[in-house]
Design a protein around this nucleic acid. Structure first.
Lengths: 291, 291
DNA sequence: ATTAACTAATGCGAAAATTGCATTACTTAT
DNA sequence: ATAAGTAATGCAATTTTCGCATTAGTTAAT
């Protein structure tokens, strides 16, 4: 049984047509036909029902399509990771991060990496599905920055720093630094909020903040990209709540008013990491200058 | 890349000796040597460091040993499951269950299955590691009976019945049915308990029961096999606490005194189960006569 | 220092598997 | 009745794999 055969099977299971599939996988129709037969013989399971005209999956075939697709992906992910380990110091390190560190922490961190490990290649992703735990354990990322601590026996998680979250308003806004006693006073303001319906830690923190003061914010615009939000606030479309580090973006016509709540930044990596480069990069994260 | 090659790799990674490995996997040393080379070439990763005398795994090799072992096992499990689906009604269904249903529910259930699906083969296991959830999702079992409800989006869980748990004492024991007001009165009794240190649901229930009455039971014997416990109690070695259904074991010289606590029995199966036989078996479980 | 024992790699010819072409066998649409 | 479509198969050429025998290097013993 060959990995290649399984891939042929998966393609055919999608196409359900020998000629088209054969073309897609760059072999002849006869060869494909025989590869599939060989696979069926070897596993002892009929995968397709075919008459001279039609091809369709059997129940067992459907089952295998679903599960083999998953396993093949995992296989390839594992192989990629092994290649990184094999390549040693000159390899690639994958990093995922929350958008809110784009303006301050991340540039500092990348500068340090670039100075100390100039050979290093980086793969930066801002994941929409913020399941850091799974991303790490599936080897889809090597280092995950997150706003919440990950509690998992196979993951090391270290708090790097805390920063206040701030009300972000245009310069001429009626609220003054000292005049704000409770954010309940803001119940008539229009808010521009980053994905309040999403499952990110920051979003759930915001939800509980508004809950605490017993009101649902009026949101006119939602955007996941922090830089966009800053510009919208500067243009007086509404006000927002963001971590303090957005201040470094230096957008004009903005004031940041610190709230009592704080938000943390954690760095997370696999506890049993063999790749020495990744371990080094984690060390540099720990020593990156922070607020 | 062949599944077979990966298996050769895994064996060699354990043995670290070409000749011995070759013998174990029934090919010649030269063939093994070339298969490993072919694998290394194809994935583009050096798996072993070898001089003329020694073989050892590289870091990448160690990594792949660990993860490939896992994936190969998953692959085989998936294949077994696909075979069951392919085999249809005459297939095999794997069932795991807690020992406490050995005497009443399980025999009734098996009787019904045998009457209605005489072709069916069953694989019964009483798992020591009671992680029903993982057993189901990894296809290591098809139907799991459990004492606690499984909360998982991919698993259907249905309560079949509740039964009281009972104090089990020898006939001549001083406690009478009516005279027991609190089990705290039993703090000087010797208990024979099924794996109190284990992680099963029943064990944790017992622990919290004793906690509630503020004493640690004196346990002289621990045994996981309920039948054994019954016999020990009958021989007046000590007393025990077990679900009522053990009464059907009809061991002589025993009295069962009902306590207030109840324990449930659930049947659990994969929500998306394609195998029609498994679905049928679940139906029969639902209609098995119960206390 | 010399020899013996080990062990992984490799040259080589035989055997087996795979490939694509051309063809067959059957179905469906016109 | 005919044409178009599609999966399987016979066949010869090519490629891969296999095990034997041998090589080349290492370690241990004398």
């Amino acid at each position: 049984m060959t990995i290649q055969q399984i891939k042929y099977f998966l393609e055919l299971a999608k196409e359900l047509h020998f000629w088209k599939t054969a073309e897609k996988v760059f072999i002849s129709q006869s060869s494909l036909s025989r590869q599939i037969q060989a696979l069926e013989d070897e596993v002892g399971i009929q995968l397709f029902e075919r008459d001279k005209r039609n091809v369709k999956l059997t129940d067992a075939g459907k089952f295998l399509q679903e599960h083999w697709t998953e396993k093949i992906n995992e296989f390839e992910q594992i192989l990629r990771q092994a290649k990184k380990i094999d390549a040693g110091n000159s390899g690639t390190v994958s990093i995922t991060y929350p958008g809110s560190i784009t303006f301050e922490f991340l540039p500092n961190f990348l500068k340090i990496l670039n100075t100390n490990l100039p050979e290093l290649k980086l793969e930066l992703t801002e994941p929409t599905d913020e399941n850091h735990e799974k991303l790490l354990l599936d080897y889809r990322t090597d280092i995950a920055f997150s706003r919440d601590k990950i509690e998992n026996a196979n993951i090391d998680s270290l708090k790097l720093y805390s920063e206040p979250i701030c009300l972000v308003v245009p310069n001429n806004h009626w609220i003054k630094e000292k005049s704000l006693h409770s954010i309940a006073e803001l119940k008539n303001e229009k808010f521009i909020i980053s994905g309040l319906h999403q499952t990110t830690f920051f979003a759930s923190m915001l939800r509980s903040l508004f809950d605490k003061y017993g009101f649902e914010p009026i949101t006119t615009v939602e955007s996941d990209f922090g830089g966009m939000i800053l510009n919208l606030v500067a243009k007086e479309i509404g006000i927002s709540i963001l971590p303090l580090s957005f201040k470094t973006a230096k957008v004009e016509n903005l004031r940041f008013i610190k709230l009592d709540e704080k938000i943390d930044l954690y760095v997370n990596w696999r506890k049993d990491e063999l790749n020495k480069t990744i371990r080094k990069v984690v060390e540099y994260a720990k020593f990156t200058e922070r607020k």
